[in-house]
Every structure is written in structure tokens, then in C-alpha cells.
């Protein structure tokens, strides 16, 4: 098992990469809206991602079950 420090040191860069991918996806969506002149008819996937990020941004998760919560959250999207 890893210590708290080891956990951050081991996975920080991968998490950074993954967050950059999400940021790039959101930029890509905005660029496409700007290019096409309209939003997607159904933005529920975008809204789902925003809600997921809000969930992750909450500092207190006493059960350390963010992944479980996210899976349940994403299960609402077809």
C-alpha cells in the first residue's frame, strides 16, 4: 500500500494529463459551437461532465467512494 505522499507523487501527473484531456474536450466543444453557430440539441452529456466535476471538487468524501459515485452518476446517461 502507498503512503499519502507516495499516492500523490505516483499519480499526480497522470491525473494532470486526464484533467487536461477533459479541459481540451470542453474547449473542443466550445470551438465547435462557435464554428457551427449552435449548441448540441441535447447537452445532457456536457451537463453530466460538469456535475461530475462538481462532485469531485467537494473536499469532503468521508467514504472515499468518488469513483462509485461517479459511476452511478454516469449511469444516468444513455
Amino acid at each position: 500500500m502507498l503512503s499519502p505522499k507516495q499516492t500523490l507523487d505516483t499519480y499526480f501527473l497522470e491525473a494532470r494529463r486526464d484533467l487536461l484531456e477533459v479541459a481540451a474536450l470542453l474547449d473542443r466543444y466550445d470551438e465547435s459551437v462557435s464554428r457551427e453557430g449552435h449548441k448540441a440539441e441535447d447537452e445532457s452529456k456536457l451537463e453530466s461532465l460538469r456535475e461530475a466535476m462538481q462532485l469531485l471538487a467537494k473536499p469532503d468524501h468521508s467514504k472515499a467512494d468518488r469513483a462509485k459515485q461517479l459511476l452511478a452518476h454516469f449511469a444516468k446517461i444513455d
Partner: peptide, 12 residues
Amino acid sequence: PVTKCSPRRAVD
């Protein structure tokens, strides 16, 4: 794979 640009970001 991790520490520089990714293929998707590069295409953006």
C-alpha cells in the same frame, strides 16, 4: 503518454 501534449490535444 503523460507529460507532454496528447494526440487529441495536438489535433485541437
